[in-house]
Design a protein around this nucleic acid. Structure first.
Lengths: 225, 225
DNA sequence: AATTTATTATAAAGGAATTATTGTTAAAAT
DNA sequence: ATTTTAACAATAATTCCTTTATAATAAATT
């Protein structure tokens, strides 16, 4: 999935059509039909973007938007989707902290363009995640995932994996790994230490195909899917 | 001045009314009446935002927008202002890299709201309350809450928590914490002081799940609910 | 094809390193 | 004067790294 979107809307006909349209464009839309439900889920998991109806059964979208801004600052972009198209409404919508405002009825294509524009603007400037097959390494978090699940690595394992992933596609010699990870003024450890570390690393990912042994040279990580 | 805006538009009547309206709201608008002129100035000086008409005397706004994206990447936000209101036009406008799209004729208030929304998105979010799970830190008040209850921290504890919460989701190394909190001309305290401070901090929040130890790196705060 | 050789994999067990805990003291704040 | 805070030392608890010994495998040689 390219993006995770929450759509707070009580009109399920509109909501479902949006969900379907976006699903075909590799974006998952979760429909939430009340402000209270939305808040509850937002405290647990944050999406890449929120689409918001103005009139909800329990609370106005405006209040929900203000709550989101207070709780998550600018982290999550909000786009209003509402029949309220008066100038004063639009101003109020933006005033509550929204990033965009689209008046119903709207074309799905236009909504899609606007969502993409906002997400583009949000995009993280720095590349913090490295991928190889289903393995994902988050450099900022110092955390590694396999199939979305966190895999707990020891510091040494992490450093070895990081080095290999930063050199994805290249065969990294044992010598180089020893120098990079273990070198203390030219004194390395027993060569087998690397072998054991690699074994443990592979074990934690259930011996993935993307970690290859290159006999008499070293190891190489590579996309295989 | 709150913001510097370039408006590329050949219809001077519209352009002047926008300029005047924005000037009263502490934003300076420079009117550029051709794409060529805009490019020339942009190479010398970059504004906070660009408003763009679709049809210009020398070149289409679409091409100019693409040129801006190529040259300045995502740095400068672009908002289209045009009579072309068909769905296909809007999609094309966003496709060229625009951040927003407003169809003429428009209300100045709406334009203003949209410009503010885009600029808000561009700026670093400055916020007074930081959250992590049920911990809430109010920067203005210098007070910390857990489950709505005030928790009394020592100045040092507060500073450590603040730093961690401002870097929520990132692993902060012990070294960095020592530098940020304890550094006095390169002299830090005993490394264990940090360990003890962390222990006390955790104690006051009943060892919350959101404060994690990342062995051999440091600590990380993260939402877990 | 069988044997040798070199290289890497596996398993288990101390030892090393890191972080947590507790208590003490000196300085600072109330 | 009493309480609070910060720094540090000593020790405990935990996690981890390294080594040793042995097995498995691939490549090279006969």
């Amino acid at each position: 999935m390219n993006a995770e979107i929450y759509y707070v809307e009580d009109d399920l006909v509109i909501a479902e059509s949006v969900k379907e349209y976006f699903l075909q464009r590799d974006m998952n839309v979760t429909i939430l039909s009340s402000a209270a439900g939305a808040k509850e889920i937002l405290l647990k998991k944050q999406p890449d973007m929120i689409l918001l109806d103005w009139s909800l059964p329990d609370e106005s979208g405006i209040m929900l938007c203000e709550w989101i801004r207070k709780r998550f600052a600018e982290e999550i972009p909000v786009l209003f989707l509402t029949v309220k198209g008066e100038t004063a409404d639009v101003v109020k919508g933006f005033g509550s902290g929204a990033d965009d405002y689209l008046v119903k009825p709207f074309e799905l294509e236009v909504l899609h363009s606007r969502v993409l524009a906002v997400l583009r603007r949000m995009r993280k400037p720095e590349r913090r995640e490295l991928y190889c097959d289903r393995i994902c390494l988050d450099k900022k978090k110092t955390v590694v995932y396999a199939e979305e699940e966190e895999v707990s690595l020891t510091p040494l394992e992490y450093r070895v994996l990081l080095y290999l992933m930063e050199h994805k596609g290249q065969t990294v010699t044992r010598q180089r790994l020893l120098e990079e990870i273990w070198d203390v003024n030219g004194n390395y450890v027993n060569d087998n230490t690397l072998t054991v570390t690699m074994k443990r690393l592979r074990e934690k990912f259930q011996n993935p195909a993307c970690i290859k042994t290159v006999r008499s040279f070293g190891y190489r990580m590579e996309d295989t899917l």
